[in-house]
Amino acid sequence: MKPFHDEKFSSIEVVQREFKQAGYICSRQIATTVYLAYHLCKPILVEGPAGVGKTELAKTAAFFLGVPLIRLQCYEGLDESKALYEWKYGKQLLYTQLLRDKLDQIIKGENGLDGSIQKLHEYDDIFFSMDFLEPRPLLKAIQEKKGAVLLIDEVDKSDDEFEAFLLEVLSDFQVSIPELGTIAAVSKPFVFLTSNNTRELSEALKRRCLHLYIPFPDQKLEREIVRTKVPDISERLETQLVAFIHEVRKLDIKKLPSISESIDWARVLMILHVDKLNYDLIHDTLNTFVKFEEDVKLVKEQLRSMAEKALNVTAT
């Protein structure tokens, strides 16, 4: 990965600017971490509330670098055979059947058992070669010649065992396949791990990564993000919308609306051809960003005062 994209990572400012052009507004913190991760060849562990753009960051990085994005979605019970490689058992069986005659021919000349085995050894490991190997995301990522962005999504959902298994890949960028030996990365991939903090990740994993926490953005940054994603939005609407979302985030509800929800809401309002918010409108479109029945009830209770605050933001 490293030597191919040096010019794209010449400075933190460049990263920030280029990401913006790719449609991802990142804070200085994010840009710095990405910059460091590239130069130190380290994976980034991204944490933060749902919907603040953790996965999007990896996607944008892949787009920006012009390399494939290889994604590994983690879940409970994910194991090596799904993450790393799998032998093509069917193909192996089929080939042994098909080649039975050929094998006979090979052994024909030899009389003794020893001789036959010797003969077979010359064709050693035919069935355990790369041709019979089905690479899964991790193996695929380290085999990419020009590097790749490897996104290991929601790593906290996987089991402890899988996490331990990741360590080899993340620190040395190599994988061990017993039948073939160790396969080292052709070009080190740019690795993003995301976590929603449903469980504490192990120290060992954290030690190998740079850590990035993406919080909810402040109003200014969020306005910029909304504007980038929904370019047709009027300035007044955008300000009111972001202000209202920030009011909602102050509440103690089950699922706080995240950036993706702000964007969804903005899109909904654009379809409705709205250029400024009002109480009824908020009331009617509430369900685009508050997703639980209890939450909706709670927000509705305080809707008056919150709406007033948010609507007045533009007035001042």
Partner: peptide, 8 residues
């Protein structure tokens, strides 16, 4: 902070 601090 990215290199040294690993939780919130």
């Amino acid at each position: 902070s990215a290199a040294l601090a690993k939780t919130l």
